[in-house]
Amino acid sequence: MATVISAITLSVVLVFLIFNLTPTPAFADLVYEDGYSVTTVFDGNKLHIFPRSVLPQPGSSDLFLLDSTDSTVYALSIPESGEVSLQRLAGNGTAGYSDGDLSSAMFDKPKSFAVDARGNLYVADVKNYAVRKISKSGVTTIAGGFSNKAGKKDGSGKDATFSNDYELVFIPQRCALIVSDIGNNLVRQINLKAEDCSSDSQSALGSTTAWFLGVGISCLIGLIIGFVLRPYVIPHTGRQQTSLVQQDMEALPNESGETSSDALLRAQKRSC
């Protein structure tokens, strides 16, 4: 009997210690800031799409969506009013390694992607140890992938190797992709082409601005030259045309009441 009572007492003590020694969340340290809300704008469960990462499309409120599970990249349009629309950009839902047309290209469980100023996408295709580029013309490999094995070799894109865990981010100020090579504990850089670091819209705006500026300066110079040369335009009669101001001055009488023409006639008579 004493043994049973001791066992019960020990159990009660253990329960008391468990509940009293377990740390409780420090809610007193939390500071909530009002004015924010959360809204679901896309539910992948309805379409069997599994968002791994999203990025903004340059110059738009729309998004790029990376589905790592099905190795597919989508363009996601989220209007303020109306239904959300989804368009597959590259990948066909089958894991593999194939460049070329957007419709036939394949990836293998990519984990991260980045977008440059022109809207080109760069995919961290980690299981293929490659960095892939998605553009309007198709899918290409720009770094890694050739050796088909993990590594940390720098050099040309074809010779470079990566670990099986890395992420990408586009840095426009460096015109480069920065690679967080997690598996190798390295931060690495992929230099891009200059054309990838300036958007078409910005270039077009610059050209249009320059064109309008040139036209404006030309017109201003033309107006200045026109005003300067106007009094000296020679008509078809071969005589120099006097300016309107000069004609008006000749028509005005002087203090004696004579016009310039009368004074000239009187001077001619005196000389005769």
Rank of each mutant, 00 (worst) to 15 (best):
M1Y: 08
A2Q: 15
I5M: 10
S6H: 07
S6M: 06
I8C: 12
T9G: 15
S11C: 12
S11I: 12
V13R: 09
L14W: 10
F16C: 13
L17T: 14
N20S: 13
T22Q: 11
P23H: 09
T24P: 01
P25R: 09
F27H: 14
S37F: 05
T39Q: 14
T39N: 12
T40S: 08
V41M: 09
D43W: 01
K46L: 14
S53T: 03
S53V: 00
S53A: 13
P56D: 11
Q57C: 07
P58W: 04
G59F: 04
S60V: 00
D67P: 06
D67C: 03
S68Q: 09
T69M: 04
D70R: 10
T72H: 07
Y74F: 15
A75Y: 13
S77F: 07
G82N: 03
E83N: 14
L86Q: 10
G93I: 06
G96D: 00
Y97G: 06
G100H: 06
M106C: 11
F107S: 06
F107G: 04
K109R: 13
A114Y: 00
V115T: 04
D116E: 14
G119I: 02
L121V: 02
Y122I: 00
Y122Q: 01
K127T: 05
N128I: 02
Y129H: 14
Y129M: 11
K133L: 11
S135Y: 07
S135H: 11
V139K: 08
A143R: 02
G144S: 11
G145H: 01
G145R: 09
N148E: 12
A150N: 02
A150C: 04
K153G: 08
G157Y: 05
A160Y: 04
S163E: 03
D165K: 02
F170C: 04
G183M: 07
I190E: 04
E195M: 06
D196F: 00
D196T: 04
S203W: 05
A204H: 03
G206E: 13
A210W: 03
W211H: 07
G214A: 10
S218W: 05
S218E: 04
L223I: 13
L223W: 07
P231N: 02
P231W: 01
T237I: 02
T237Y: 02
A251I: 06
N254A: 11
E258V: 03
S261P: 00
D262H: 06
Q268N: 12
Q268G: 00
